[in-house]
Structures are given as structure tokens and as C-alpha cells.
């Protein structure tokens, strides 16, 4: 009920407050000649299984088609869900890997968080103001051999868990390109923007009610003309062991989430 209320409130906000949640607009490449920041989501082998991995890449490519050429300015902030739209099977999205309760389950539009992670990273590095961002609630403990991933992340859930950001001045243009290496996202600006550096603190582990939680802080060091350290957000994530099974290989039915991909 609470989720439905939040979703309804956000949808009403879209309809009644176009100044806060504007429709996405398109900007021509000639208006934004200066490269600002770039990020590649690499193709690599995953433990999700080939079907879910294929679905994930299909979803990433399909969502990226909605992002290409989108203009972002202070008057027209970027909103992930206003731009990409709902991830439904009827709109061509497939089942991809989705974390839920410590399991990898197939879900339509699964894997799209890679895109929101990359967009959040781009926004931080291009000195954008973060208007709305939500961190993931789970983090995977990869064991002592694998180094912990310290990266800025952002999760999305339609329509009320959104990623929104806007540049302080000028216009940014988001460009996407699918290549054999992966999905390349880049921001170009109407004026030169010095890239900021982003730091994620070493996770501090606490024990609460028998579960482990990792606490991190995301900070951004400003450009040379304003070299302050700005705290972007604090995250508190439940630590789970790395899932080695998904619905392809797990035969547990009592979880209630099991679906055959």
C-alpha cells in the first residue's frame, strides 16, 4: 500500500509539476561540442547465466536508445524514469538478472541498474547537482580474495525511486553508443567543464540484529577553481554473500520468487 502511494504521488507530480519533472528534450550535437565525461559499461562474463545476461544487455541497449541525444540543463533536469519510461515486456524489455532478498531472480528490465550506476557516476564527475539519488540496499561480499568494489551507485525503481540531476550552468548532451566492448555513455557540454574526482570511503562494517551492514560515504572533490570536498551521500547496505545460484540452477520453490527464465 505504501509503495502504491509513493508511486501515485510521483505520477501525480509528473502531471502537475512539469517545472520539477519536465519532459525530456533533445539537443543537437553541434550545440554541445565539448567532451565532459565518459564511462563504459563493459561486457564481461557474469554468474547470472547466459539467458539473464543476454536479457540484461538487451535491456541496457533498449534503454540506451531513449537516452541518446537527451539535453540536460538547470531548467530541464535529467530524470531517469521520465526519459527511459516504464520497463515492461510490452515495450520490448526482457527478463534480466535482478537482486532480491539475496537471490538473483529473473525480472523484466533486470540489469538496468548498471545504467543508473553509470549515469550517476557521469553526473558526479561532470559536477552536476544531484537532485535525487537512492543507493542500493544490498552489497555483495566477494570474499577475502576479491577486492571490494568501491564505486558510486544508484538504484532505480519505477516510478518513485529515480535518479535526477542537472548541471549548474550550460547544457549537457547525453550520448550512448553500443560497441563490442560494451555500452559507452558520454556527456558533452555547451561549455568546458573540468572533471571532478569522486571518492567512496572504505566500508565500515557494523553488526545489527545479527546482520552485517556496510557504511560508506560518497564525496566529490570540486574543480581547481572551487576545490572543496562535498559529501554527496551516506549509504548503509546489508552485506550478503555472493549468490552462486539463480533460478536456472536453484531448485528451491519455497522462496516464492522462483521463476523459470
Amino acid at each position: 500500500m505504501r509503495v502504491a502511494g509513493l508511486a501515485a504521488r510521483r505520477l501525480v507530480g509528473w502531471a502537475l509539476r512539469p517545472d520539477v519533472y519536465p519532459e525530456p528534450s533533445r539537443v543537437g550535437a553541434e550545440q554541445t561540442p565539448h567532451p565532459v565525461a565518459s564511462r563504459t559499461i563493459p561486457r564481461r562474463a557474469s554468474s547470472f547465466g547466459p539467458k539473464l545476461e543476454e536479457g540484461r544487455w538487451h535491456n541496457l541497449g533498449l534503454a540506451a536508445t531513449a537516452l541518446d541525444g537527451v539535453g540536460i540543463s538547470a531548467e530541464r533536469p535529467f530524470s531517469f524514469w521520465r526519459t527511459v519510461g516504464r520497463l515492461t515486456e510490452a515495450r520490448g524489455y526482457r527478463e534480466g538478472a535482478h537482486f532480491e532478498g539475496g537471490c538473483i531472480i529473473p525480472a523484466v528490465g533486470g540489469g538496468i541498474c548498471s545504467l543508473s550506476d553509470a549515469l550517476f557516476d557521469l553526473a558526479l564527475r561532470s559536477n552536476c547537482t544531484i537532485l535525487e539519488r537512492h543507493g542500493h540496499t544490498l552489497v555483495v561480499d566477494r570474499g577475502p580474495k576479491a577486492p571490494p568494489r568501491r564505486r558510486a551507485d544508484a538504484t532505480v525503481k519505477w516510478p518513485y525511486v529515480d535518479l535526477r540531476f542537472a548541471p549548474g550552468r550550460g547544457v549537457l548532451r547525453l550520448e550512448t553508443k553500443m560497441s563490442s566492448e560494451g555500452l559507452v555513455l558520454s556527456l558533452k557540454g555547451s561549455e568546458q567543464v573540468e572533471e571532478a574526482s569522486v571518492e567512496v570511503s572504505e566500508p565500515r562494517i557494523t553488526q545489527e540484529a545479527g546482520q552485517r551492514f556496510a557504511h560508506t560515504t560518497i564525496t566529490r572533490r570540486g574543480p581547481a577553481h572551487a576545490p572543496g570536498l562535498v559529501t554527496i551521500g551516506h549509504d548503509r547496505k546489508r552485506v550478503i554473500v555472493s549468490p552462486t545460484r539463480n533460478c536456472d540452477t536453484c531448485h528451491e520453490d519455497s522462496c516464492g520468487r522462483r521463476r523459470t527464465p
Binding site: 519532459e23 533533445r26 533498449l62 536508445t65 531513449a66 541518446d68 520490448g92
Partner: peptide
């Protein structure tokens, strides 16, 4: 509109 652009690109992807 921008959504028509996105739709055209999405159809090519599908």
C-alpha cells in the same frame, strides 16, 4: 518529439 526519436531508435534495436 523526443519520444518519437527514442521510439524510432528502440525499434531498430528490437
Amino acid at each position: 518529439g523526443p519520444r518519437a526519436h527514442a521510439r524510432q531508435r528502440a525499434e531498430r534495436w528490437q
